[in-house]
Amino acid sequence: MSTEGWPEGAYLLRLDAENGHQRYVPLIVRSATARGRTLLMHAAATWQAYNRWGGYSLYAGGDGSYGTRSLAVSFDRPYDSNGAEKFPVYERAAVALAERLGIPLAYTTGMDVHRDPSVLKGATAVISLGHDEYWTPQQRRHVTEARDAGANVAFLGANACFRRIRLEPGPGGALRTVVCYKSGYRSDPALADHPTMPTNDFRSPPAPAPESALTGVLYEGYPTDASYVVHNADHWIFADTGVRTGDSFAHLVGVEYDRVTPDAPTPGPLEIVAHSPLICKGRSSHADTAYYTVPSGAGVFAAGTMRWVEGLMAGTRENGRNHGLDARTGAFVTRATENVLRAFSAGPAARTMPVPEDNVSRVYGRTAAGPGAAR
């Protein structure tokens, strides 16, 4: 199918069969450049990692077990279930909100940022959507370089930039295969020639590079269901939301979450603006929403909960029961996201918005380790 002449954007196509059956196809008509625009970066590699079409994903094999999982998955197959994969839950609502705001937008995928980082040049902001788990080292390097050149970065979810992957050519020669050995990385035949590029978690040996050096937060756990608790109601992110410090929003933290981890490499100054107590697998912890800036002036926002984009639909029934999220939560998440997108679309956030107050030591009783620290 040719998309020549189509406007750049994120599409969800619906296929209707004569017998009444329907399937969806998510499609990104990517932008050649994001100069002067906010770049929405869709998580196609993560869609494919979870895709069970043909009986195999990076999580389970034909018998449903982790031991028989695939170690490589191809884009040369449709998505299972209704075909929409994670786009309706973790991406669509954020795209719709950004488009309603009328800010200049561009569209791409993490795969395309890996292939050609020129799309990032001159971007005002890069937006990672609600479930953006699988990144190549090249994609991460390119986004980090964009941040250091002044592009703001927002992570509207949790568990972002967690799995380190390799892209390999498919039958036609293009990079159509996502490789991730995870805990079996020692069996990867490419490891001998590329010892610093294992296909396991970014934070793990033999080449540890915790995602917090970019995101400001670390993925910590699954599953949880907890209230989101505002720590600093006066922060510009929460402007016009009407919240007070200590206000909470039931069920907004889940099903996976991130937190600021002082022992991990973390840029600064970094401010925790929401600090939400939770229990995950019997252990008490917190989820954190955090914001930091870097010398280029770029600001980085991390929501710290995978339900942030789902929260944009709270109270609308657009996402089924939506974990019990209510309309009050929907209004809060919508306004906070609008604040981030508007500020980030105006250029390096440190030039127009208040500098973050580094409060990690006050919240956790110790200071962040800094970007060069080892974990």
Rank of each mutant, 00 (worst) to 15 (best):
P171G: 06
A190G: 04
A209T: 07
T196F: 09
N200S: 12
A158E: 13
T196E: 08
T177S: 03
D234P: 10
P195N: 01
L218M: 09
S183L: 11
S227H: 02
A239C: 08
P169M: 04
E211F: 03
A192S: 12
K182Q: 05
I165A: 12
P210I: 01
G246L: 03
D201G: 02
P171N: 12
L214Q: 05
T196W: 03
A213Q: 05
Y185N: 14
C180Q: 01
S227V: 03
C180L: 00
S227L: 02
G170P: 09
G170M: 00
L191I: 05
Y181W: 12
S212W: 14
R163P: 08
P223G: 00
E220G: 06
G221C: 13
S212H: 15
T245D: 01
H231D: 07
V179I: 05
K182G: 00
L167V: 13
S187Y: 02
P171R: 04
L214Y: 04
P210R: 01
R244T: 00
G157M: 01
R176S: 15
T177P: 01
I237A: 10
P171M: 05
C161R: 15
H235Y: 07
V229W: 15
P210V: 00
S227N: 12
A160P: 06
F155M: 14
G242I: 04
R186H: 08
F249C: 11
G221P: 09
V243Q: 02
L167F: 11
S183I: 14
G242M: 02
S248I: 00
T224S: 10
H194Q: 07
D234C: 13
A209R: 12
V178I: 05
A174D: 12
F238A: 15
M197C: 06
C180G: 01
D201L: 07
T177W: 04
P198T: 13
P169T: 09
Y222I: 14
P169N: 01
F162H: 11
R176N: 08
D240N: 08
T241E: 01
L218H: 12
S204C: 07
S212P: 11
S204P: 04
Y228Q: 12
A250S: 07
P195M: 01
T245R: 10
A233S: 15
H194Y: 06
G157S: 06
D193L: 14
E211D: 02
T196Q: 01
Y222C: 11
R166K: 15
D193A: 14
N232P: 06
Y222P: 11
A226H: 09
L175Q: 15
D201S: 07
M197F: 10
C180F: 04
F249T: 07
E211S: 08
Y185R: 12
S248R: 00
C161H: 13
T241I: 02
R186V: 00
P189H: 10
V217P: 07
P189R: 11
G221Y: 08
T245G: 00
S204K: 12
Y219Q: 07
N159S: 03
R186A: 06
D234S: 15
V153I: 03
C180V: 01
E220T: 03
N159F: 03
A154Y: 13
P208W: 03
R166W: 15
A160T: 03
C161Q: 09
A160F: 03
V179D: 04
H231N: 10
G172L: 14
A174Q: 03
P205Q: 13
P206R: 14
T224D: 02
G157V: 02
M197N: 11
P198N: 14
P195K: 05
V179K: 08
G157R: 00
P198Q: 12
F202P: 07
T241A: 08
D201V: 06
